[in-house]
Structures are given as C-alpha cells and as structure tokens.
C-alpha cells in the first residue's frame, strides 16, 4: 500500500435530510503536509459541506476520512486538537470584546494565562488590530470581524488550518493582510485547506487546487500545470468557466 497522505478523503458522500441530490458525491482527495490547497467551485458546489465534514461540524453519509493517520470518525478528539477552523460566517460573540472572545476560544484549546495573553496580542498586531483588543465585536467593520474570526482559528498554531471563503466580501487591504499572513503561517509548517471562488487569488496562492461542482471533483492539480495543459486557457478562471459552464448559479 502506498504511503498515506496527510489528509486522505475517499468516496466521501453527504446527503442532507430530505434532499434528492447528494451535496458531496463520491469525493476523493489527497492533500500532503505543507500544502496550500484550494477547493474551488461555484455556489452550492459542496465546498462548505466538505469543509464542515472535515472539521467535525456535521456527520457524513459515506466514505472515509483520515487526517495524519487518524480516522476522523474514531479519533475526532485527537484531530480537533491539531486543526484550526475559520468558518465562512463570523463565529464570534458580538457582545464581547475581541480579547474576551479570543481568550474564551484560546481557553478551549487549552491555552492559558500570560502565554495566551501575549499570543492574542501578537496576532492582533499581525492583523493590524492593535488597540482594538477591548472593543466589542459588534462595533467592528466587516473586514475587522473577519480578521478576528481568523485569529480565533489560529491561536493554538494548528497543524492544519481549514478556511471557508476567508476573503469573501472584504476590502483589498484586509484580503492582502490575510493572504500574506496565511503564506507566513504555511512557511512555518501549517497545512492549509481553503475554499474560494476567487480564481486569480487561488492561482497565485495555492500549491494545488481542485475544482468541484455538484459535489464532484471535476479537475485538480497545480494551477500553473493546469493552465499549461488546458488548450486555449490562460488563467484558472478560463479553466473554471470552461469546466463549469457559463450558466448562472444561485
């Protein structure tokens, strides 16, 4: 048997209750340690569903997932310790300050005291949020909320980071800060799996990508190679349109 990949997804299938189509359909994917992997696809493709399954938020109907040699089903608790999650929506208590939010989540990851305090302070500085520590989340702008939302997922320096559309709906400045930071994090050894529908962003950011539509992977590879292989396509966006068609999605 070949050596196991860091993240191995085989035949993953997810049926939501009372639906006639599988949201994720027989999906196979291998991701190596140290990659920045992009899961790309139109709305409703099944990106969020796949990510939610990977980070234990929802159960799956069929298939197998192993991360770092642990089965997701049997060793969920082990895996929770090494993953970090940045959800698509802002998952923060908006009546609490940034610091209170981050301290709470840090505590849940087993971080404590002064170590946690300085870690929070460092991250806030990295994301240009110095001085906002004691402001309530509901006073933050969308970009600021997104950055705090991200910090909450990386406080414990996870080995794997899952991000669901971290750059959607924010200004270019926030986006740049986030992308640069993630690159930095990746250099330090964090494997990143992220979803997006920004093709040009993914083209430059990811080591490899997979294009997913209607719960199935329709293409995968390194962005540069994919562009080379696909005749007449000069960017990832061309490939994407070529594969998924121009029909509007909801």
């Amino acid at each position: 048997m070949a050596e196991q990949s860091f993240i191995e997804i085989t035949g993953l299938t997810k049926w939501y209750k009372n639906t006639t189509v599988a949201a994720v359909d027989q999906l196979n994917l291998n991701i190596d340690e140290g990659e920045i992997f992009g899961l790309l696809g139109p709305n409703g493709a099944g990106k969020t569903t796949t990510l939610s399954i990977l980070c234990n938020q929802i159960p799956f109907s069929g298939g197998d997932i192993s991360i770092n040699g642990f089965s997701l089903k049997r060793n969920a608790m082990e895996l929770k310790k090494i993953i970090g999650v940045v959800p698509q929506e802002i998952a923060l208590y908006d009546k609490l300050t940034a610091f209170e939010n981050l301290r709470f989540f840090g505590n849940l990851y087993g971080l404590k005291g002064n170590f946690l305090k300085s870690r929070i302070a460092d991250c806030m500085v990295n994301f240009g949020l110095e001085g906002k520590l004691n402001k309530k989340i509901d006073t933050f702008s969308g970009g600021m909320k997104r950055r705090v939302n991200l910090i909450a997922g990386i406080l414990h320096k996870p080995r794997i980071l899952f991000l669901d559309e971290p750059t959607v709906g924010i200004d270019v400045q926030s986006k740049t800060v986030i992308i640069d930071y993630l690159k930095e994090l990746n250099k330090e050894g964090t494997t990143i799996l992220y979803t997006s529908h920004h093709m040009d962003e993914a083209e430059h950011f990811c080591t490899r990508i997979a294009i997913i539509d209607q719960g199935k992977i329709i293409a995968k590879g390194a962005p540069s190679e994919m562009i080379k292989l696909q005749k007449g396509c000069e960017s990832l966006e061309d490939i994407f349109l070529h594969l998924t068609g121009r029909k509007l999605r909801d």
Binding site: S52, C55, N56, Q57, M77, K80, K81, I83, V85, P87, Q88, E89, I90, A91, L92, Y93, D94, F105, L108, Y109, G110, A152, G153
Partner: peptide, 14 residues
C-alpha cells in the same frame, strides 16, 4: 450561539 456559528466553531474544538 447556534445562529452566529459559534456553536459550529465550538464543535470543531477539543
């Protein structure tokens, strides 16, 4: 907590 996604986040945590 459920609506804001915090509950979902908590699910991913040890």
């Amino acid at each position: 907590e459920r609506q804001s996604g915090v509950a979902m986040r908590l699910k991913t945590m040890p």
